[in-house]
Design a protein around this nucleic acid. Structure first.
Lengths: 144, 144
DNA sequence: TGTAATCTCTCTAGCGACTAGAGGTTCAAG
DNA sequence: CTTGAACCTCTAGTCGCTAGAGAGATTACA
């Protein structure tokens, strides 16, 4: 086990520059180097990076991952904190799904009603131009 | 009708710096100024900004909004292009909802199974550490 | 051992859509 | 005419990467 950064990238599915980025921001620890200053990784590095990757896929922010990693490093701690982080993320996801569903409805209405003639009578444009919207109802879903 | 930027902000729900930003990137046209170089807006400016705001709420990118605005300015054009943009956005939203639902399921499983003892046997941490994940299945949903 | 191909290194800048702050000017009410 | 809120421009920061330049290291094969 003496993997180059490229090897590690292939094994975890995390891109090479991203691995270096994670080291920069302190998510991955500094690692051993060859004489020529190239990074070399071992088994625990794979595990740690896979953990990070999975957490990112679940949408956890880097700060949350930092906390989760430090919890993992100390198995005697109570896991209430980890549970809390996961629950917070779950709430976010649910909220986001709800917002997106509202948004989907409005988009569907727009698209269905479009007779596809001239722009002058296009429902898509009309709906957007319609100023009878309260401020902020859909705002949360807009973020990508 | 001779609104200051603050008035315009209050009427549309778009923040003052954001309005200036929209002018910078060419979404809002340059507008008249007082002798002291303060911006003044009229009715069409309100309408245009409201259009932009609503489109942003629906998650359209600035580039798409640029196109939609230019279509709106010319009512004789066919509205197929507008329809297409809206449909593309709808596809994105549906895709995103699907990804988020997958994500929600996994998070729920994690949270439910957590017995909330020591980190050593915490399902949240364990699930994240579990390396038996194919690369990239959930990746799309991770973006916020 | 030579050499070519492929990594890898550091560093800086860019993405999108804003947001925050510094430091200074103008406007409107009293 | 003074005060204080609102306005101005400009730069830099947010998040989580990603791209590119220009240079050095490593490896496979002849």
């Amino acid at each position: 086990m003496n993997l180059s950064i490229g090897d590690l990238a292939r094994r975890t599915g995390v891109k090479v520059p991203t691995i270096r980025y994670y080291e920069n921001i302190g998510l991955m620890p500094e690692t051993g180097r060859t004489e020529g200053q190239q990074r070399r990784y071992d088994r625990p590095a794979i595990a740690r990076l896979a953990f990070i990757r999975h957490a990112r896929e679940l949408g956890f922010e880097v700060d949350a991952i930092r906390t989760l990693l430090s919890l993992q490093d100390d198995p005697e701690q109570p896991c209430a904190r980890a549970d809390e982080i996961a629950k917070a993320r779950l709430r976010e996801v649910k909220q986001r799904i709800a917002s997106l569903n509202a948004l989907k409805k409005e988009l569907e209405k727009m698209v269905e009603e479009c007779a596809c003639g001239r722009v002058g009578e296009c429902r898509v444009i009309e709906t957007l131009a319609d100023r009878s919207h309260g401020h902020g109802r859909l705002a949360e879903a807009a973020a990508r």
